[in-house]
Design a protein around this nucleic acid. Structure first.
Length: 737
DNA sequence: CGTACTAGTCTTTTT
DNA sequence: GACTAGTACG
């Protein structure tokens, strides 16, 4: 019984209930992963359940990986045959086997949001819809919502009757789906919806999986949307052995279609469900838990829970108010530095959490200046960076020429003299004949006739087919290297934007690392498999906790993680809770933000620091915001330092952000941060070789070289902390010291 | 066909 | 303020 001995009474109760529906309401830090893993181990080792009959679903690859590793450590053998995967990858695996029943090819490609946008653009162009009046994003959002709610094109057409806007939407929806299908592609939401469609249209396929997955577990259940709920309901309908783990207080993905009712109504949908509450927290001090409890208590629709710990009171919560966001970043970085110098922590023990990605920039800058190693999670997804998408587009084109978007992306990257007119001629022909774009490239001479254009296309086709023929003999790593070499891709980067070239080349290096890792992890790695894996990664999946770096991330990304020291930055009304949620009529909006705050507070193990700035730049404009209402919901006695008296709202408390005239902040201390402050279009910079200068991102350094270029000076600076950098004077905004 | 400039959007969060 | 897409021009 050793796997159960590691659990407390409540946890054990949840782990031992294998039959029937089980809802585990697991508060933050209550050891839910431990319950899931030990429950699984118990199933296999004690209850004699075949691991092959177990399905465990998570939201991120990271969570899936972690769960599998932990089960591995507990179970003697057999853990590799458990199906542990994310919702999306589970669906992909199922669809790869059966989607032909729905009229798709089983080697479909998965489109990311960028790709979807391109498809939508074409649709709107074809339907002659004015994108100024109806931006593509609005359609895409609505389609996404429909799919999350399992509403098909037909459903929308039926419901639209008579309403002009709804009918137009239904038409766009139909065309968009047709566009995806033509490219043999599915978008993220399709993965779920098509799987549900498959199961409802072909009961024999569903039954096949029902017979396999006798025991189903779902992690982070509070974040499931209707499609995910339906998927689970269908899979478990026959055996009813469904165990879900979640915390309604941590439901923070409503914008993505998550339906909090899924967890709140679990007992109604699954009668006779056993409900277990886990309220003992093993992560945080009592002070932190008291603060979290006090904040979340302000929400109305929730399952009553109260976290407790035997870890002791711990340190008080530190609350810092400063005038500007710059000072906020400085203070946070200083505090981390001081702790590190005093030997109280490693860098990796610290996380700075914020509401919006844009907030990371200032903190990054201060980290660079202070020479602190840091790592930013999120922002622009690694796989959506231009250079990465380019290389992937090459790989997709080589893998199968069916993805028109990929082919068109790289047909003239790097520039090989193929212009817009040539491309649209080929695209028109492809549309008219139903062929793929790449097929038309192969037959370019017949379509375009003899000439320069056809020749250029032929060269491109030749390039791709050389790669294709090599594919069998070389490793994926060699293939990527070969692509880079033959296209002279890096040279193109250097030429087109020297400023970012280095970073982009590093990113490509990172991609190569991932390729190598992929080949090491798989016995028979194929290009298709690699592309598939890459399509479904989230930023959080790539977080390396072992590196000794301060972690910077949004509150959303932080869910599921824990750190000894947590800094919650930008605790201001208007930023967090966001302006939109304050203005919304629906009180549920604020409650969602409050849950996000609860998530943030409960990430902290030992010490929590909260900060607010009197003014900050938001969207290029300086705004003044009062201290966040959430801070005021934390009892005074838990906080260290003064009450937020001087930060009280200045004029009208309820009026939201007050805009301030720009000159207030563009004043002295950061004058060198403003664009073009010391270089006029005609004159030379006021510094030269040998001078000491300051850069907003890299800190201080010495100018070693200055070359006059066509329209600007190219300056080489040896920075004290950031090394030698080459940059253009007009962009670098260097300030002479 | 390629470049350079302009206008417009974004900033709430993401598989 | 930062980035992107679209357009006008060479």
């Amino acid at each position: 019984m050793s796997v159960l001995e590691q659990l407390n009474d409540k946890q054990r109760e949840a782990a031992m209930q294998l039959e029937g529906p089980v809802l585990i309401l697991a508060g933050a830090g209550s050891g839910k992963t431990r319950v899931l893993t030990n429950r699984t181990a118990y199933m296999i080792d004690e209850a004699g359940i075949n691991p092959w009959n177990i399905l465990a679903i998570t939201f991120t690859n990271k969570a899936a990986q972690e769960m599998r590793e932990r089960i591995d450590r507990l179970v003697g053998f057999g853990s590799e045959s458990i199906w542990v995967a994310t919702f999306h990858s589970t669906c992909v695996r199922i669809l790869r086997r059966h989607i032909d029943l729905l009229g798709y090819d089983t080697n479909f490609t998965i489109y990311d949001t960028d790709d979807s946008k391109s498809v939508m653009k074409e649709v709107l162009k074809r339907l002659q819809i004015d994108t100024k009046q109806y931006p593509e994003k609005r359609f895409l959002n609505r389609i996404s919502n429909c799919k999350n709610e399992l509403s098909s094109v037909e459903d929308e057409e039926r419901d639209a009757l008579g309403d002009y806007a709804d009918e137009m939407f239904a038409k766009v929806y139909r065309e968009y789906q047709a566009g995806l299908k033509k490219n043999n592609a599915l978008d993220f939401d399709d993965l779920l919806m098509k799987t549900v469609e498959l199961f409802t249209s072909f009961p024999e396929v569903l039954e096949n999986y029902q017979n396999r997955f006798l025991y189903i577990m779902v992690d982070e259940y509070q974040d499931t949307n209707t499609a995910q709920f339906e998927l689970i309901r269908l899979l478990s309908a026959k055996n009813k052995n469904i165990c879900v783990v979640g915390d309604d207080d941590q439901s923070i993905y409503k914008f993505r279609g998550a339906n909090i009712r899924n967890i709140l109504d679990f007992e109604k949908v699954f009668p006779n469900a056993k409900v277990v509450k886990l309220e003992q927290n093993y992560r945080s001090t009592q002070t932190i838990l008291d603060a979290a409890n006090a904040v979340i208590a302000n929400n109305s629709s929730r399952k009553d829970k109260k976290l407790w710990t035997d870890k002791g009171e711990g340190e008080k919560i530190r609350f810092i108010t400063v005038d500007t966001a710059y000072e906020e970043a400085e203070r946070i970085v200083d505090l981390i530095c001081a702790d590190k110098r005093a030997g109280k922590c490693d860098y990796r023990d610290n996380a700075v959490l914020y509401r919006t990605n844009a907030q990371s920039r200032l903190i990054e800058e201060k980290c660079v200046m202070a020479g602190i190693p840091y790592s930013v999670v999120g922002g622009v997804n690694f796989y959506s960076r231009r250079e990465i998408k380019d290389i992937l587009a090459y790989l997709k084109t080589i893998d199968n020429g069916k993805d028109d978007l990929a082919v068109r992306r790289i047909i003239n990257v790097p520039k090989r003299g193929i212009g817009a007119t040539t491309i649209s001629k080929l695209a028109d022909h492809a549309a008219a004949t139903g062929q793929s774009f790449y097929d038309c490239c192969v037959a370019a001479e017949e379509i375009l006739g003899h000439g320069r254009a056809a020749e250029k296309i032929a060269e491109f086709v030749e390039l791709i087919s050389v790669f294709k023929s090599k594919l069998e003999f070389i490793t994926l790593e060699q293939l990527v290297d070969d692509i880079l070499e033959r296209t002279d891709y890096e040279a193109m980067l250097e030429e087109s934007d020297p400023d970012d070239a280095q970073e982009r080349i590093e990113n490509i290096g990172e991609l190569v690392n991932k390729v190598v890792a992929f080949e090491e992890q798989n016995d028979e790695p194929t290009l298709s498999q690699f592309l598939e894996e890459v399509a479904l990664v989230a930023d959080i999946d790539n977080v390396d906790e072992n590196a000794d770096k301060v972690m910077l991330m949004t509150l959303h990304s932080a869910k599921g993680l824990e750190f000894p020291n947590v800094y919650l930055a930008g605790m201001e009304d208007g930023l967090f809770p966001g302006y939109m949620s304050i203005c919304a009529d629906d009180p549920e909006e604020i409650e969602e933000e409050r849950r996000l705050c609860y998530v943030g507070i409960t990430r902290a193990m030992d010490k929590l620091t909260i900060s607010a700035a009197g003014s900050r730049m938001i969207r290029g404009e300086t705004t003044r915001n009062p201290v966040s209402r959430f801070v005021k919901e934390i009892p005074q006695e838990l906080m260290q330092g003064k009450a937020p008296a001087k930060m009280q709202p200045k004029v009208q408390p309820q009026a939201g952000p007050v805009k301030v005239k720009p000159f207030v902040t563009k004043a002295k201390p950061f004058a060198y941060l403003t664009k073009g402050s010391q270089i006029s279009s005609t004159g030379a910079p006021d510094y030269g070789p040998g001078d000491r200068v300051a850069h907003m991102k890299f800190g201080q350094g010495t100018v070693t070289e200055m070359v006059k270029g066509a329209r600007d000076y190219e300056v080489t600076v040896d920075f004290d902390n950031a090394g030698v950098k080459k940059m253009f004077a007009a962009f670098a905004k260097l300030k002479k010291l």
